[in-house]
Amino acid sequence: MKQKIAVQVDDLTVAYNYKPVLWDIDLEIPEGVLMAIVGPNGAGKSTLIKSILGILKPIAGSISVYGKPYEKQRSLVAYVPQKGSVDWDFPTTALDVVMMGTYGSLGWIKRPGQKEKKAALEALEKVGMLPFKNRQISQLSGGQQQRIFLARALVQDASIYFMDEPFQGVDASTEIAIINILKALRKAGKTVIVVHHDLQTVPEYFDWVTFLNVKKIATGPVKDIFNDDNLTKTYGINYKVSIQE
């Protein structure tokens, strides 16, 4: 059975100041997978996501989302940046941050109204953050801030979700809550792509994996390619993990 391709990346090369951080990446992400992108620090994991989302301009290559350029498919895609990429002292509340997820569908100038507020409240409910809706965002714990970011992506009601290290600096209960939401998204037929650091949890959380270290090492189902060979190729040291079936 041939699955539909959600995201296709061809010959992608991205550079900072002409120093390539991603070399000639070819990648097909099938629809409906829950995929981890793994690789050492500086492997270009975040860069890959940012390039797909048009935040960084590649020096070569092309990207398509369901067969069209990203710019035409924004409404199908939601993005959760790294938690550390924003200033949490910004004067705003949890609800307001989640509302920002609705701005994309509103477009320029138009303001959010009751409909957007209702959607934001529902998303807060889903991540268990409704009691915190009026909290100033600096008054939330790290895990709660991550949940707010997740709610902001949920409110976009997208088909593809990109998440940059959603488990960074969160406690165990938040991690479980987040992974349950990601699994529910996959069950609903969504495609979820996660930059991930904890190799131990890859087989448990994900069904698809991409190994990345400046070049693409491998991509495919976790059960077929998550092995010592690929880990060694990616991390450059003899890597041994025991994979439990």
């Binding site: 940012k50 989302l53 048009g54 935040i55 710019e71 924004r74 895609v77 993005y79 940046p81 990429s85 924003v86 200033d87 910004f90 705003t92 941050v97 920002m100 701005y103 994309g104 477009g107 902001r152």
Partner: peptide
Amino acid sequence: KVSTFDAGLAASLG
């Protein structure tokens, strides 16, 4: 507001 708080999100939203 959105581009001041989170430029990455603003860019991805267009």
